[in-house]
Design a protein around this nucleic acid. Structure first.
Length: 711
DNA sequence: TACGTGGCGCTTTTT
DNA sequence: GCGCCACGTA
């Protein structure tokens, strides 16, 4: 008799998640919500991330394929964290799931359809600085006599245009509100916008806003593509919905237009990005825009002790515009009340924080569990010095980000140009590094290069550029629903990214660049540069990114850095880190995308050392994080709230939400400090008044400390 | 092109 | 009190 043998499925079903046991009833309701629009109002520390994570897991457990789920977040970190957590609780392969920031998802879509979006494959992404550079160039062509009129610089122009786009308002409106003194230039700014668009197109470059706007525009104008993505994304989930702006909301709405299975999660009380165009009316009016939307409220706070929560609730209650909700503490009473600590000046404020941290560390609290929060990066300066003096290790998250530093961007420019030879900003940046070549020579060189490229392009443009062919849409819906919550739907076909060789049809690098006239002084360096570039793309074939970085460093940039940077060692180390980071990318294109869209190297890539350290962070960047002990410093009127917010009540309300975010980061202990005098700014009154937000908290909820002693 | 000087304006938050 | 910018000079 034949031996019986059974083959098992390779992927075991795994333990099914017991949702009811893992979640509280409010969370469970949201996680197991039926299809349809849903608004989840999740208070601070109530398990918002947990809810979203389990929601994704729930969808997968119910047979939704990962590629039919779109998860939108504001930061890469949040996206990765959530996907990691989903992976940890359920056994599905998440590779196909679309999770990421609005910008990265926009980028992903545009990379698949560059031609349809009006760009060529291999387009560059410009960060804010690149955009400002380009706009400076645009402003220069507007023909203003700088002596006659003061026309806004690229920085301001970028700000106006971006704000306008993100809020969907008129240029006049935006000018009146933000820059009334530039109102007279409305016509010229409009002209600048048109020229900027043309220039970006010519450079085959997109700025941050384009990643959203061009995607929305593509989907609005191309019904077949829109339908493809709308079919694909059966479930759209949005994190931090209170911070979406008009454009991002359009982005969500158009992708969710078919299934209306859009679950947005947020907390209106934590909306802190209006200066970037965020409009928390998006969240307030979600139910109106989506008839039949179900609202889920999650109000149990697991993070903070009741004493901290009481301060938070009291602080936010002064705001008029909000969904009424009161956070309920799940935790037991803590040991201490939040402290309010006035100090004579900012030096002593720093000393107090440092000393208190050491004491707490003695008591057994890890440095990792402590953080100092402030309104603005420069508020951390004295503290940085004090911590350094005392040898307390710290990690700083505010300030200049890793990828925005000059040396990183310099090296990146080489790669960018080789990948996209039309990239004007990258080319000029690279050229200006050479001794003897400044802005003028760089302009002249670019003019020649640009002409040569256009000449080569001309025949190319006539050729029909290939556009992505998508399968004809199947109109008939599938007969059987996949699961109780899955809508009947035909599977969609994944569209590939459009990849092209940027040098196809163009003259070889040497041929293109060597004949150009450069100042005599720069001749040798120029030749060196050309040979290096040729090495990055030998025969027009792109080398892997980390090889490119090494070539650039060895041939050109290491020498440059030695001569030009007093802190050469530090910068060289950064560049090695960059090269190391590049190793995980095969394609330079993908690497450069990350370079543009990532704000910082995460702990994984950079801080390999396991050293314990305290965290110094702006309140904005602390959103979503928590620590056992939190110090909020510079709680003085004019600092926090910032003096710029004092004119309008709406701005004050946003500052108050910011204060609320700060307070709700604390799990066990909270210290609210302010200096009574400030000497480092001769600007304004050195006398500091305590923040109005402190006055709004009933005295009974906090303990006032009187700090004495010899400083 | 690179560097020095004097005047001015005024501080945020960032995908 | 400082950094940035515009301008003038080698």
């Amino acid at each position: 008799m034949a031996r019986q043998y059974t083959l098992h499925r390779t992927a075991p079903a795994g333990p099914r998640i017991d949702f009811a046991a893992e979640l509280n009833p409010q969370q469970l309701a949201a996680v197991t919500a039926p299809p349809g629009p849903a608004l989840v109002i999740a208070g601070a520390g109530s398990g918002k991330t947990r809810t979203l994570t389990y929601r994704v897991a729930y969808l997968l457990e119910n047979g939704i394929r990962p590629e039919h789920v779109l998860l939108l977040t504001f930061t890469n970190k949040a996206a990765r964290e959530m996907l990691d957590r989903v992976a940890a609780i359920c056994p599905h392969d998440l590779a196909g799931l679309w999770g990421g920031t609005f910008h990265s998802i926009g980028n992903r879509i545009l990379r698949r359809h560059p031609n349809e979006a009006g760009f060529a494959p291999g387009f560059s992404i410009m960060d804010r600085e690149d955009a400002e550079d380009m706009l400076d160039g645009v402003v220069a062509t507007l023909g203003f006599d700088p002596k006659e009129k003061r026309f806004p610089k690229g920085q301001v122009v970028a700000d106006v245009l971006s704000y306008q786009l993100n809020t969907g308002r008129s240029l006049e409106d935006v000018l009146l509100e933000k820059y009334p003194h530039f109102f007279e230039f409305a016509a010229e700014l409009e002209q600048a916008r048109v020229k900027y668009e043309a220039k970006k197109k010519k450079a085959n470059a997109l700025d941050f806003d384009d990643l959203l706007e061009k995607t929305v525009r593509l989907l609005k104008s191309n019904a077949a593509l829109a339908e493809h993505y709308q079919r694909q994304f059966q479930f759209v989930l949005v994190d931090e919905y209170q911070d979406t702006n008009h454009l991002q909301n359009d982005f969500i709405e158009i992708l969710a237009a078919r299934h209306h299975n859009v679950m947005v999660v947020g907390d209106d009380a934590q909306s802190i990005y209006s200066w970037r165009g965020a409009d928390f009316r998006n969240i307030l009016e979600f139910p109106k825009r989506h008839p039949g939307a179900v609202v889920y409220k999650i109000e149990t706070n697991y993070r903070s002790v009741p004493q901290v929560l009481a301060v938070a609730n009291a602080a936010i209650s002064a705001n008029k515009q909000q969904f009424q909700k009161v956070l309920q503490a799940a935790r037991e009473e803590g040991a201490v009340k939040p402290a309010m600590v006035p100090l004579p000046d900012s030096q002593q404020q720093a000393q107090f924080v440092a000393q208190r941290m050491l004491e707490l560390h003695e008591e057994g609290i890890a440095l990792d569990d402590m953080a100092v929060l402030y309104r603005a990066h420069f508020h951390s300066m004295e503290l940085q010095m004090e911590l350094t003096r005392r040898g307390i290790p710290f990690e700083l998250t505010s300030g200049l980000r890793f990828f925005e530093q000059a040396h990183i961007k310099d090296v990146g420019a080489f790669l960018k140009w080789v990948v996209n030879p039309r990239d004007e900003v990258a080319f000029k940046r690279m050229a200006r590094l050479l001794p003897g070549i400044g802005a003028r020579s760089a302009d002249a060189l670019w003019a020649s290069v640009s002409d040569a490229l256009s000449a080569a392009d001309a025949p190319l443009l006539k050729k029909e550029t290939p556009t992505t062919v998508i399968a004809p849409v199947v109109v008939a819906e599938a007969e059987q629903p996949v699961s109780p919550i899955a809508p009947a739907e035909t599977p969609t076909q994944e569209l590939p990214e459009t990849i092209a060789n940027p040098w196809e049809g163009l003259p070889a690098i040497k041929e293109l660049l060597l004949p150009l006239k450069v100042p005599a002084k720069a001749k040798a360096a120029w030749e060196q540069l050309v040979f290096t570039l040729d090495e990055l793309a030998p025969g027009g074939h792109l080398a892997p990114p980390q090889e490119m970085i090494h070539s650039v460093l060895e041939a050109v940039y290491d020498d440059y850095a030695r001569v030009n940077f007093p802190n050469y060692d530090q910068r060289r180390e950064d560049l090695n880190t960059l090269a190391n980071f590049a190793r995980q990318y095969e394609s330079t294109q993908a690497f450069l995308d990350q370079l543009a869209l990532l704000t910082s190297l995460d702990a994984t890539a950079r801080n390999n050392e396991e050293t314990e350290r305290v965290t110094l962070t702006s309140v904005h960047q602390a959103k979503g994080l928590e620590w056992k002990v939190v110090f909020v410093i510079w709680l003085a009127d004019g600092k926090f709230p910032s003096s710029r917010s004092l004119e309008s009540s709406e701005a004050i309300e946003e500052e108050r939400r910011l204060f609320y975010v700060a307070v709700t980061r604390a799990m066990d202990e909270l210290y609210l400090t302010y200096p009574c005098m400030s000497f480092n700014s001769a600007y304004g009154d050195p006398l500091q008044r305590p923040s109005r937000f402190l006055a709004e908290v009933p005295k009974t909820l906090i303990e006032e400390w009187e700090v004495g002693g010899v400083f």
